[in-house]
Simulated assay, not measured.
Amino acid sequence: MFKRIALFLATNLAVLLLLSIVLSVLQNVFGITLGNNGTLLVFAVVFGFGGSLISLMISKWVAKRQTGMHIIETPQGELEQWLVSTVRRQAEKAGIAMPEVGIYDAPEINAFATGPSRNNSLVAVSTGLLRSMSRDEAEAVLGHEVSHVANGDMVTMALLQGVMNTFVIVLSRVVGRVVDSVVFGNRDNGPGFGYFIVVFVLDLVFGLFASFITAWFSRQREFRADAGGASLAGREKMIAALQRLAQNHGQSSLPTQIAAFGISGGLKSGIGALMMTHPPLEVRIQALRDAGSAVSR
């Protein structure tokens, strides 16, 4: 937890330092100022990180409400006992606190993990997964989700999103002021109409590129979670689970806010592929096989 706090503080300081340098160069070298640069930096960091951190803190609450899941507090029946005992064993092996375990009603094979920290998390599986997967396959999926928690993926994604948001806010306004000054000749007065038009457009454009970066990172964390699931449950079990997921055809009924945390992501083509939060299942399966071959050599 202390490492995560240190990372958050270091990230904020790095963002502030870099943006301060950019704004100083614009003002002292090019004579372009955005008004009160300190106010802009505070505004960017508060709004950039604020939304992502609030989403992180309420992620469990949102997941429970939006999926209508049943939280297993006192296991009823052999299946619930198996789910809780499996997650507990994997959590102990991964060195994290016991997550809450939930079941939500959905036809597809899916599962997700969320929560504000490694020691305050939630692992949930769909009823479709419980109906369609063997115990070995389900064990691997649980290991994948526990690995997400152990890797601190939810916190890291929130920090990355905060950094991206902050840069989008500042860069769109920096470029907007430059265009307003150079193209429209509005140097001495406050921001003109051109500034606000450019900022609006660049918020969309830079936001799209920021989404590409966060989606790319999300795909990398899926590979790491697959490797973690293979370590906790067994490589062949993890491969079998992904093969079973392939029969799901990438379908997901998870709400948008938590869809990126599901084990199964939708398939896209063209520029949409850059927005995918999950690599194609066949690529993930091959990565596990390649890792297994490397170990055996």
Rank of each mutant, 00 (worst) to 15 (best):
G272H: 12
V149W: 15
A246K: 14
R284M: 08
V45E: 06
L56A: 06
N36K: 04
P255G: 13
K268M: 02
V174M: 10
P280Y: 02
R289W: 00
F49W: 00
P75V: 02
M154A: 08
M69S: 11
F184R: 02
P280R: 06
N36D: 11
V29N: 06
S117D: 08
T256C: 00
L34I: 10
T86N: 07
Q220F: 09
A158F: 00
V42S: 08
L160F: 02
L171P: 04
I72Q: 07
M164Q: 06
V141M: 11
Q257T: 14
L9Y: 14
T214M: 03
A150Q: 03
P255A: 09
G128L: 14
V199L: 12
L232P: 15
S218G: 09
L83P: 11
R235G: 01
M1N: 13
N119K: 15
V174D: 01
D153I: 06
A111Q: 10
S218W: 05
L83Y: 12
A230M: 03
L232Q: 15
I239N: 05
L19M: 06
A233N: 10
A233K: 14
P280F: 00
V146I: 05
R244P: 07
T39E: 03
L83C: 07
T166K: 07
G77N: 09
L19Q: 12
V163N: 10
G185N: 13
L56W: 11
V163T: 12
V125A: 09
P107D: 15
S147L: 10
F167D: 13
N165Y: 12
S269P: 03
F217I: 13
Y195V: 01
R88K: 12
I58T: 09
R219K: 00
N37I: 01
D180S: 08
G51K: 04
A106P: 14
S59Y: 05
P280E: 00
N12D: 07
I109S: 03
G185Q: 13
E222D: 07
D188A: 07
Y104L: 00
A294V: 08
T156N: 11
G48T: 08
N120I: 10
N120S: 15
G102M: 03
I109A: 00
L9K: 11
I71M: 14
Q220T: 15
K3C: 04
L171C: 10
G192I: 05
V62H: 11
R173F: 10
V42H: 09
R173S: 13
A294I: 06
K268T: 00
T11V: 09
G68F: 02
L204V: 12
L56E: 04
A230V: 04
Q251Y: 10
E222Y: 09
S296N: 13
I21C: 03
I197L: 14
L159W: 08
I103V: 15
M57C: 07
A124M: 08
L40V: 13
I72V: 07
S121D: 03
I54M: 08
N120C: 14
W61M: 11
D180K: 09
V174K: 12
A259I: 06
V174S: 08
G194I: 01
T127D: 06
V174W: 00
G229P: 13
V182C: 13
I21A: 14
V283R: 11
